[in-house]
Nucleic acid binder design. Structure first.
Lengths: 191, 191
DNA sequence: AGCTTACCATACGTGTGCGTATGGATAGTG
DNA sequence: CACTATCCATACGCACACGTATGGTAAGCT
């Protein structure tokens, strides 16, 4: 087995970084080749065309984005008893987390959401992901809120705060954005 | 005075439509020329280059996006006494309004917000617009909420719901998205 | 009628990016 | 050592898009 200088997975990861940084139009083969230190010849050996790479990018995102978030909350069993409310607070805290494998997972999320506005196939994938996340949020809210209508309203509020705060550029008079987000989330989870 | 077949304003409007439909990368001169029924020669007479058109697009957006929304709420003085809470409900209702001059104003907003994530100058413009909108929202919330911290939290929640709900593709078990949004807004404006 | 101005068409050069075709290099295999 | 499979480089054709240069046309003025 020849050790590939740029295996298929490296193209997908580089594509994810480009997608997070500049949107789907920034996922250009020759630009990725330069960052990987190879040429297009490598790409067209691993992939049929550019669309195959975009599909691969969306596949990996759809596969890890949900489990990654949920397991990062459920897998905190090192502490005491994780209540549903503490899990929701952790979920809100993850909103402003910028880590992962050199990629900001939130940036990928935002880029795909804007992409889904003009691509029907991407919209269908996003719908699957969002429904799974909303299901998880609903299960947490239901532990301390019986009214189904109220659960739905507060879920959408929390989800919208998580996403929308990244698209809003307002200042907050001395308070930082992270502080306001935390305050808003705490207000959502009370009673 | 010669009647221009494609005056400068028509290029800006066509650019706004293209921006709303496909993002800033979709604002291509020759594509706009085809939709206007002219050629590039017209464009380079009205504008220096592509960047001048993008600046013009952002100028008109920045000029009308705030006043357009606020005056559409304050200018509803045909009814009885417009309370602050009813104004907030109208502001929430405008979220899902798709009208204007053939352009969906929300789509332009969303495209510019994603654009601002990777362009510093656009981010500065968005910051000015968002601060003005938040100022207006704060003034409404303050009429029935004294705590400044709570005002700020609920403003960001409402603003995030307005923006974020457009980027979320989840279903709601029988209820429509518009119903959940209305319910969430009502929950925000109570007490 | 002649001239000027406003507005647009046409044609060209250039850069960039996709996809293809083909050759070369390297490691494993018989 | 020959042979093959894996992986990548190189070179090309093509399409599109920006910007420029230049010519053309119609309206208004004198």
């Amino acid at each position: 087995m020849v050790v590939a200088r740029a295996p298929r997975s490296s193209w997908t990861e580089a594509g994810l970084r480009a997608l997070a940084a500049g949107g789907p139009d920034a996922v250009r083969i020759e630009a990725l080749a330069r960052t990987l230190g190879v040429t297009k010849g490598s790409f067209y050996w691993h992939f049929d065309n550019r669309h195959a790479l975009l599909d691969d990018i969306l596949d990996t995102w759809e596969r890890v984005s949900v489990d990654e978030v949920i397991e990062r909350i459920e897998g905190t069993s090192g502490d005491e008893d994780p209540t549903a409310r503490s899990k929701l607070e952790r979920l809100g805290a993850i909103a402003s987390s910028s880590e992962a494998l050199g990629i900001e997972p939130v940036a990928v999320d935002l880029a795909i959401r804007d992409w889904a506005r003009r691509d029907e196939k991407v919209a269908r994938r996003l719908r699957r992901v969002d429904n799974r996340r909303m299901d998880y949020m609903r299960s947490l809210f239901r532990t301390f809120c019986t009214d189904a209508t109220e659960v739905e309203d507060r879920c959408l509020l929390g989800f919208s705060l998580w996403i929308g705060s990244n698209f809003i550029a307002a200042d907050h008079h001395g308070r930082s954005r992270a502080e306001v987000i935390q305050g808003a989330f705490r207000r959502l989870f009370d009673a």
